[in-house]
Design a protein around this nucleic acid. Structure first.
Length: 136
DNA sequence: CGGCTTTGACCAGCGC
DNA sequence: GCGCTGGTCAAAGCCG
């Protein structure tokens, strides 16, 4: 960002967002983990990594590998707890969980975010979707 | 062979 | 007016 000197020689892309659309719900969970790729019951593909000023650590951007699943997930480490990662889910899933029910990988310690409450469950994603679907 | 990961670069909006 | 940040995309390489 310091040196953005570059020659524009590429076609523009239809990507722009003035205001956050209320359509996509945002869930922020604080999970105590050492790895970013937490198994929440879905597959995520990292599509970017940027360092934010709010945190001394870089933020990771993940996207659901599903087809009609436009769910995004951003993972960043806590500023005071390097052992804790802040997982923010954006959007809602529209596909079954690819992970088997026998997948009890994450041990988990989900804390309440700034407004929402999460339960320690391997199927955090499924639970989230269910909660949203039932609520909305 | 397929699928996933990583890095760099670019863009847009906003603030002062 | 300029600078800055945040966010996304693209391509390539590597691994199982």
């Amino acid at each position: 960002m310091t040196t953005m000197a570059a020659t524009a020689a590429h076609a523009a892309k239809p990507k722009k967002k003035k205001h956050r659309e209320p359509r996509e719900l945002r869930f922020t969970f604080r999970t105590q983990s050492q790895v970013d790729q937490l198994e929440d019951g879905y597959r995520w593909r990292k599509y970017g990594q940027k360092a934010v000023k709010n945190s001394p650590f870089p933020r990771s951007y993940y996207r659901c590998t599903s087809a009609a699943c436009g769910v995004k997930k951003r993972v960043e480490r806590d500023r005071d707890e390097p052992g804790v990662v802040v997982t923010t889910y954006e959007g809602k899933h529209a596909h079954p969980c690819p992970a088997p029910a026998t997948g009890h990988l994450p041990p988990p310690l989900l804390l309440a975010d700034g407004g929402r409450v999460a339960r320690g469950d391997a199927a955090a994603g499924c639970a989230q979707e269910r909660a949203v679907d039932t609520s909305a």
